[in-house]
Structure formats: structure tokens, C-alpha cells
Design a protein around this nucleic acid. Structure first.
Length: 116
DNA sequence: GCGCTGACGCGAT
DNA sequence: CATCGCGCCAGCG
């Protein structure tokens, strides 16, 4: 039988987690890794996205924990992601994702503009 | 076999 | 709010 490589399996789960992100919403690399069952593997999630070739994958919904785009500002990827996010209704300012509402939502959901 | 780098995260300053 | 440093894992020279 095919020896299932853990690496491939992890990659698969991470991709699934990214695809699970609803349109108009965003998640962090660590968050995605966590949902994939791989807590602490944020870097792995980033690597998976970097190697990903699926055009249907909403990779642009994945940001850093700070809410900033992971790509260097001005980079093609940075620009693409910024553009896609704004196209989905996500407020992006200066490479920084602007979630709606004030600090009240902070405890309810770190990521989620209107989970209420 | 070893060391560096990287689409990261978080605490501390 | 910005910056620095350390930790973690995986691919590459």
C-alpha cells in the first residue's frame, strides 16, 4: 500500500482549511494551521500556500496574525491579494486588513467581521 | 550532514 | 502602535 506521508496529509488538511474560509472573511496562517489540526505550524501553512497551484484556492483570505498581508508591500502577490480582498468586501488599508466594528468584537471573534 | 532562509506567531521592550 | 528576538518546521545549497 502506499505509504501515506504525513507531510502530504498535513498539506491536504491545510488546503481544506483555507477552502473552508467563507467569502468576505479572513484567517491567519496560524489559525488555518490550527484548524488543519496542526497547531504551531503557521510556517507550514505558508509553505503550502506558496507551493499551491490551485486557482480556486482562496489563498488571498489568509493573512498574518497582525492582519497584514504576508507579502512584501509592493510585491505582485501583495497587490493581488489586496485587490482580491477588496473585491470580496474586505477593507484593506495600506496592506493592513481593516475589520469592521470596534474593539467590542475582539473577544467574540478575532477574525470575523460580522460573526454576530 | 550542516546551516540559512522563509507568504509566521507571540511576548517583551 | 512599532520594533526586536526567539521558537518551529521544512525545503534547498
Amino acid at each position: 500500500m502506499a505509504a501515506t506521508s504525513s507531510s502530504d496529509d498535513s498539506t491536504r488538511r491545510i488546503l481544506a482549511a483555507v477552502r473552508a474560509i467563507p467569502r468576505g472573511q479572513v484567517a491567519g496562517y496560524g489559525e488555518v494551521a490550527r484548524l488543519a489540526g496542526l497547531p504551531g505550524r503557521a510556517r507550514l501553512a505558508a509553505r503550502v500556500l506558496a507551493a499551491n497551484e490551485d486557482p480556486a484556492l482562496p489563498w488571498h483570505r489568509v493573512l498574518r496574525a497582525d492582519g497584514r498581508i504576508a507579502f512584501p508591500e509592493g510585491s505582485p502577490g501583495w497587490r493581488e491579494q489586496c485587490r482580491r480582498l477588496s473585491a470580496e468586501g474586505v477593507r484593506v488599508e495600506n496592506g493592513r486588513v481593516r475589520r469592521a466594528r470596534g474593539p467590542a468584537d475582539l473577544d467574540a471573534a478575532i477574525w470575523g467581521p460580522d460573526s454576530a
